[in-house]
Amino acid sequence: MNNEAVGTWKVADREPVRGRARPVKWPKLSAAAWLLIVGIVALALPTMLTVAKVSWSTEQGGHGPLVLATGAWLLWREVPAALRLRSAGNALLGGAFVALCLIAYLVARITGIIEIEGFALYGALLGAGYLLFGGAVLRELWFPLFYLGFIFPPPDQAVTIITQPIKIAISEQAVNLLYALGYPIGSSGVSIQIAQYDLLVAAACAGLNSIISLTAICLFYVYVRHRANWRYAALLMLTIVPIAVFANFVRVILLILITYYFGDAAAQGFAHDFAGLVMFLISVLTIFALDGLATPLRRALGNGHDD
């Protein structure tokens, strides 16, 4: 096997094995590359500790550690082959982008806006990757790099704007269904009344914020399982958000029924977390079920070959 030096990296060539390419080994790192890694860790560590404290301890951000671990695994598996495409990035373009990201990072760090700080840091790291390895490498690694962005919390204001209409619609449909089944239930604005209990729409639909978690996990499954069949993978990805909305509808029904039969305290205690777990399981199992039922479609879009 021939080796070729690429800057400070040494990348091994692929060799065909029974018609398939053998994964190349990770390149050996030079002292300069290790210094760069140490610098990146020193810059990222304070931000990641803040993200873990502020976001990963919440329901909508609890997927962060899992995304970080699986995203790192994807990079570990795919970076060596991608480095074969290495070429120098545009120094002016890449340098300007990194500078802007670092300025935004500094401002966000001073003001304590963790949502901006996290994405500004990540942008600076992507810009550094572009300068070191070129755009072709980043394009080859597009999914792991996109997927790792889920470890940072999105702006609360944006989440509220996007999810509020969906929350209201879910609550209205839940009330309509239970009313049709004979339950003493009604709604007024953002409040649901069942018997003598009041339940806020925001509390009932709090799980909708975890739609980001569900999207991240399901995207990982679709990519790893069906990346070779990109047309089928794209169709399956389109089902993720509707499935998450349906799962949250089930969660709202559960919380309303728990409130009705066991009281408000039960619905806001262990049962609240249990309903969230049920919602997550429903979403994941629904994706698995759809994937299984769509086998003929997958084979058709894969030109007759199952992946």
Rank of each mutant, 00 (worst) to 15 (best):
N3Q: 07
V6T: 08
V6Y: 10
D13F: 03
R14Q: 15
E15C: 14
P16R: 00
P27N: 06
S30C: 06
V38H: 06
G39R: 04
G39N: 06
G39E: 11
A42M: 12
A52V: 02
V54M: 10
W56Y: 08
G61H: 04
A69N: 09
A72N: 05
V79C: 14
A81L: 00
A81N: 08
A82D: 12
R86F: 10
R86C: 10
A88H: 13
N90I: 00
L92Y: 10
A96M: 11
F97P: 12
A99I: 04
I103W: 14
I103V: 15
A104C: 12
A104S: 10
V107P: 00
I110R: 15
I114F: 08
I116S: 14
I116A: 13
F119A: 05
A120F: 02
L121A: 01
Y122D: 02
Y122S: 05
G127H: 01
Y130E: 08
R139H: 05
W142M: 09
F143I: 07
P144A: 00
L148W: 01
G149F: 01
F150V: 03
F150P: 00
P154Y: 03
P155W: 02
D156C: 03
Q157G: 10
I166W: 12
I168W: 12
A174Q: 09
G182K: 13
S187Y: 07
S188N: 13
G189C: 09
L199M: 14
C205D: 12
A206L: 10
A206D: 03
L214K: 02
A228V: 14
N229Q: 07
Y232S: 04
F246A: 08
V252M: 03
L254W: 02
L255Q: 08
A266H: 04
A267L: 01
Q268K: 12
G269R: 01
F270Y: 05
S283Q: 01
I287Y: 01
I287L: 14
F288D: 03
A289L: 12
D291I: 07
G302L: 04
H305Y: 11
D306S: 04
D306P: 04
